[in-house]
């Protein structure tokens, strides 16, 4: 039976651990061995909205495994722009490839594609709903950097209201028994209460603050996100908060020695360039881990064992 990757909510902890194990194995494989694994297979990268990083890292992953890539990078390059329905596009493209990677602004589109398609579908982001491959690569990065996931303390900084990356990662970390979270956000961009809801309210602790400095010395992972200007109805409000979430190297003096600063990228002005040179900067290796995790995902969903 074909296996799709649509939502983190569909995965058990054991299934997530399987992805992590596989990613570690992929990383240990020599490049020439890796290159033989998906020869003759074709991945369709169907990007109905632009996304440089996710698309390029999927394409890079497929090329590293020896497979071929077809696809498009924006809706205007497809027949959807001529009025073709989304499902007709899926029915057509599934004849051209072995696996589909879909990014679409509509929420639930990957789920719909998975339902109508006879080949595996990977969700590369559906509107503000899910982006499971980002969450998996974040978990892989945390496990690699800290040697474990459970029991760590994570601070999230920035737009916690709209960032699906943050929502999805918090829910996944909760599954891994991460119980302490520090949430640093302006009042208007705080984490919606729904994401803190759980059957075990006494187990999890969410500390909310407006001040980045408060979080730095207390966490193992500092997960930064971009504060998007367009999210603010009042631009004066944006001007007020934008710099209060700027992390600089000087602010990291009090940090725990093993602290890692992560960011889904692109950054705008949340992390000063002087942080890049510190031992804490984990965001560019995180981007590299994205390719490794996506190699693992492609292998798993194409049924190739290593």
């Amino acid at each position: 039976m074909k296996k799709d990757l649509i939502s983190m909510e569909d995965l058990t902890v054991d299934e997530i651990k399987d992805y992590l194990r596989l990613a570690h194995s992929v990383e240990d494989l020599p490049a020439d061995e890796r290159y033989r694994l998906l020869q003759g297979k074709i991945m369709a990268a169907m990007f109905f909205e632009p996304s440089t990083r996710t698309r390029l890292s999927f394409e890079s992953a497929m090329h590293r495994l020896g497979g071929g890539v077809i696809g498009f990078a924006e809706k205007s390059a497809t027949s959807v722009s001529k009025g073709e329905s989304f499902t007709d596009t899926i029915y057509t493209v599934e004849n051209y490839c072995d696996i589909m990677v879909i990014r679409h602004p509509g929420e639930g589109t990957a789920r719909l594609a998975a339902r109508v398609s006879s080949i595996p579908v990977i969700n590369a982001g559906d509107g503000s709903n899910q982006h499971p491959t980002q969450t998996l690569l974040d978990l892989f990065t945390i496990e690699k950097d800290l040697g474990k996931i459970s029991g760590i303390k994570v601070a999230f900084v920035g737009d916690l209201k709209y960032s699906r990356t943050v929502h999805s990662l918090i829910r996944a970390l909760m599954k891994f028994d991460v119980t302490e979270f520090i949430l640093v956000a302006p009042e208007s961009l705080r984490l919606p209460k729904y994401f803190m809801m759980t059957d075990e309210p006494n187990k999890y602790h969410f500390y909310e603050t407006n001040h980045l400095e408060e979080a730095i010395s207390k966490c193992d992972i500092l997960y930064m996100t971009r504060i998007q200007r367009e999210r603010f109805p009042d631009l004066l409000e944006y001007e007020k908060v934008k710099d209060s979430y700027l992390l600089t190297a000087a602010m990291l003096e009090e940090a725990r020695p093993h602290l890692r600063v992560l960011h889904p990228l692109p950054r705008v002005n949340e992390i000063a360039y002087d942080v890049d040179k510190t031992k804490y900067a984990g965001y560019f290796p995180q981007a590299r881990n994205g390719v490794i995790m996506r190699e693992a995902i492609l292998l798993k969903h194409l049924g190739v064992k290593i």
């Binding site: 329905s85 602004p105 509509g106 719909l112 503000s128």
Partner: peptide, 8 residues
């Protein structure tokens, strides 16, 4: 923005 409202 749900696909059930975007596609017929």
């Amino acid at each position: 923005n749900c696909v059930t409202n975007l596609e017929s």
